[in-house]
Write a protein that binds this DNA or RNA. Structure first.
Lengths: 115, 115
DNA sequence: TTATATACATAGGAATCTTAGGTGTTGTTT
DNA sequence: AAACAACACCTAAGATTCCTATGTATATAA
């Protein structure tokens, strides 16, 4: 259905960044936020999201808190202190990669170019 | 050794784009060009490059031509017509993805923003 | 009551990359 | 002369990351 197999490697960073801005979010909310921010062009599949969340939690970057909302269970995720450090690191790593990508794909952009 | 596991999905596009600009290149040359364009920050491993080249050739996007240079064999790759069409398509797909990524990671960038 | 939206989860498989190794030539250093 | 780095190709095994498909369950709208 969703045909964006370019994400590879950036999903963790996306999750951490959204949680840096929002304090706590639950899985489904993350998929909707991404869809909304990208006008429906990037769709995080649940089969990718939930394992990624579980992994980040296992690594100690996220903590969870379960809330009951109208007989419906929500699992809220938030950044740990380690998680807060990782956001900055992962973000600059990804931004650096994208800049290098632009140097390959858009050769007119000079090395000193800043967005 | 090279620690850039972010490439996933963009290697094909990188190869096609370099070949769009250079008419013909051989594998080792591609790794050096990428290293040079990114100041050594992105290193294409041969274990990733050669299978990717073979796949693009199998898909009919590249053709090969072997040259002998001082008892040394070079396998030159160049774009087929199908390959030339694919470059544009793959490039805009990747650029679109990067723009969406920026909308998630740099919320201050407005939807109409162009680089 | 059937479908859609909400909300979680996992198993199996596909795709892509890294690690690690192999072959052989040329040029430089010890 | 030997050893090493650079050049130039290749592949196999494994890890990672994602998609597809499926399952569970509740709420609401058609």
């Amino acid at each position: 259905m969703s045909n964006n197999n370019l994400i590879k490697g950036s999903l963790q960073t996306i999750i951490l960044k959204l949680l840096e801005e929002n304090e706590k979010m639950y899985g489904y909310e993350i998929t909707q936020r991404v869809k909304e921010l990208t006008a429906g062009e990037i769709k995080i599949t649940e089969g990718a999201l939930y394992p990624a969340l579980h992994k980040l939690e296992a690594e100690g970057l996220l903590t969870t808190e379960i809330q009951q909302v109208d007989n419906r269970v929500r699992k809220y995720y938030s950044l740990t202190k380690d998680g807060q450090k990782e956001v900055t690191s992962k973000l600059s790593e990804l931004q650096g990669f994208v800049e290098n990508l632009q140097r390959i794909l858009n050769p007119e952009i000079k090395p000193g170019f800043n967005i």
